[in-house]
């Protein structure tokens, strides 16, 4: 494998572009693996009884850092490894439970080049279950402006996420 793996450059990205959709069947293992990978030992992410009887939710549910990891994976599946996340903001309106099929869909909302010459795409990502919005995420991801550009080389004042 080389760095020439999928590489989206800024010129190829336009407002309104849709990212390839990701549908994933969530199991209890998905939730527990995600929580433990994030070192999140809180019981609502692995203990059904605690989630239902203490938290008042219908089951254990996906934790915040694991949702962030899913969003990152979704975005860089599209951008390739040269895509560099600058900022991510998400709001959880509902929870993701075992048995859900979560669907991540994204649309490019803004394309810009900042004062330093860094190229940015702002992507709105929606995580839905059965068509209902569970989390929306706005991500700002740096993309190469040319075939030779690499956002990962930016440091200090040249990186303005």
């Amino acid at each position: 494998m080389t760095a020439t793996t999928t590489k989206v450059t800024l010129a190829a990205v336009h407002v309104g572009d849709a990212l390839p959709e990701l549908a994933y069947p969530v199991t209890a293992t998905t939730i527990v693996l995600g929580a433990l990978a994030a070192r999140d030992w809180r019981p609502m992410h692995h203990d059904y009884d605690f989630a239902v009887n203490r938290n008042g939710t219908k089951d254990i549910f996906m934790n915040t850092p694991n949702q962030a990891a899913w969003f990152e994976r979704f975005l860089t599946d599209w951008s390739g490894p040269t895509g560099r996340l600058g900022r991510m903001k998400f709001r959880m309106k509902g929870s993701v439970f075992p048995g859900d099929t979560m669907v991540l869909a994204g649309t490019v909302e803004q394309v810009e080049t900042d004062e330093t010459g860094c190229g940015w795409a702002t992507v709105l990502v929606r995580l839905t279950v059965d068509g209902e919005l569970m989390t929306d995420c706005t991500a700002r991801i740096a993309l190469p402006t040319t075939d030779d550009d690499n956002p990962w080389t930016r440091r200090g004042d040249q990186w303005r996420p």
């Binding site: 494998m1 760095a3 793996t5 693996l33 433990l36 990891a69 990152e72 860089t76 490894p81």
Partner: peptide, 21 residues
């Protein structure tokens, strides 16, 4: 973490890519 979300980004799996980028 990558396994938990099936993230195949070569930056995290392939040292040559990580070195280059």
């Amino acid at each position: 973490s990558c396994s938990s979300v099936e993230n195949g980004n070569p930056l995290f799996w392939d040292d040559a890519v990580a070195h280059d980028l």
